Amino acid sequence: MNVSAMVKLTISMAIFGSIGFFTINTGIPAVELVFVRCICATLFLSAMWYLTGGHKTEIWNKREVLQTLLCGVFLVLNWVFLFKAFEEMSISIAISIYNLAPIFVLILGTLFLREKMTVSGVLATVICFVGSIFIVGIESFQSIDLFLNSGFVWALLSAICYALTMFTSKTIRNLSPYATTFLQTIVGIVMLLPLCNFEVFVGLSTSNWLYILGTGIIHTGFVYYLFFDSIRNLSTIIVSVLVFVDPVVAILLDTIILDFRPTLLQTFGIVLIFAGIIFTVFKPNENPTNNVVNEENVS
């Protein structure tokens, strides 16, 4: 057991668990925040890629590069939708729905890779679906307006794009994590530049800028570095357990600092969602997409 790698992964997941708290304190919308995040990640990880000498031994493959660029589109949309969800709903609720991604990976594998959907997979999907209804609130599904304004759609789209990110990166083997992330964040810069309203950066406080740079440099650059530096030295089962530090920290911060108080039904919904996810992740013999879920589970 590599204790150093475990510590690095735990720290990276704990830091990422605070991204919701940072996001709502930046004072800028989701698109502009993700744009800054892509710039910071590109600069930070490119520097690490260069300093570690990885750029000298990089193996470039045209198919993998194109696949990575497509993966980058899903990754950037995943970030935008997640941050928009934070604008509309509690961090705890958004993160819980966002972590439905492993379930969607299982469904994608069934639809496109002809992987057999097992009884346990169907059960986990149903459990998570019911949990989602409880966590958002049954009343939010009583009218289209309430449903659209609940933030549920943004959170669900973020989970789907997260799953597509994991799914499309499944067969990338030769490109290093640094090269992969570099290409993905470059895609984000190109995608979001035309959509950015740079006027939102005018009049921001020093505190806003600290949160913005923290989201870009710490939550993206530093966290990705720790994550990539640790998972190669850990077993899949250890990674599976430690990635749950992320939502736990997010929910604790939301409860302690932002005074989020879930109702009984919302609490039950959170429990159902994570029960379904854990049930999916820890069924390696029945779930062929297990390795994808575990090894790519970082945002």
Rank of each mutant, 00 (worst) to 15 (best):
Leu252His: 05
Phe44Gly: 06
Gly72Leu: 10
Val241His: 09
Asp229Ile: 00
Asn25Lys: 08
Thr171Ala: 12
Asn25Gln: 09
Gln184Asn: 10
Leu164Gln: 02
Leu272Gln: 06
Ile189Pro: 03
Ile15Tyr: 02
Trp60Gln: 06
Met6Thr: 09
Ile231Glu: 05
Thr168Pro: 00
Leu33Pro: 01
Ser120Cys: 07
Trp79Tyr: 05
Gln67Glu: 07
Val281Asn: 05
Phe279Cys: 01
Tyr224Val: 03
Asn197His: 11
Thr215Met: 11
Val119Asp: 08
Ala275Thr: 15
Gly151Gln: 07
Thr289Ile: 14
Thr168Phe: 13
Leu111Met: 13
Asp246Ile: 02
Val292Asn: 12
Thr215Cys: 11
Tyr178Pro: 03
Ala14Phe: 14
Trp49Cys: 06
Leu258Phe: 05
Val202His: 12
Pro262Gln: 12
Leu123Gly: 03
Thr267Met: 15
Val292Gly: 07
Val239Thr: 09
Val271Asp: 05
Glu139Gly: 10
Thr263Gly: 12
Met1Val: 13
Thr206Val: 14
Asp259Glu: 11
Ser158Arg: 05
Val122His: 02
Val245Gln: 07
Leu264Tyr: 09
Val293Leu: 08
Gly151Ser: 06
Thr165Glu: 00
Val249Leu: 11
Thr57Met: 03
Val190Lys: 06
Asn294Gly: 11
Val119Trp: 10
Leu252Thr: 09
Glu199Gln: 11
Val65Tyr: 07
Ile218Glu: 05
Ile212Asn: 03
Ile278Asn: 00
Ile93Tyr: 07
Phe167Pro: 01
Ala179Phe: 10
Phe227Lys: 04
Gln184Met: 15
Val105Asp: 04
Ala85Trp: 12
Thr185Pro: 00
Arg173Gln: 08
Phe44Val: 13
Ser140Gln: 15
Val80Lys: 04
Ser299Ala: 08
Thr289His: 07
Ala14Ser: 15
Ser235Pro: 00
Ala94Asp: 11
Pro29Gly: 14
Leu253Thr: 00
Glu58Asn: 07
Ile133Val: 14
Leu193Arg: 12
Phe244Gly: 04
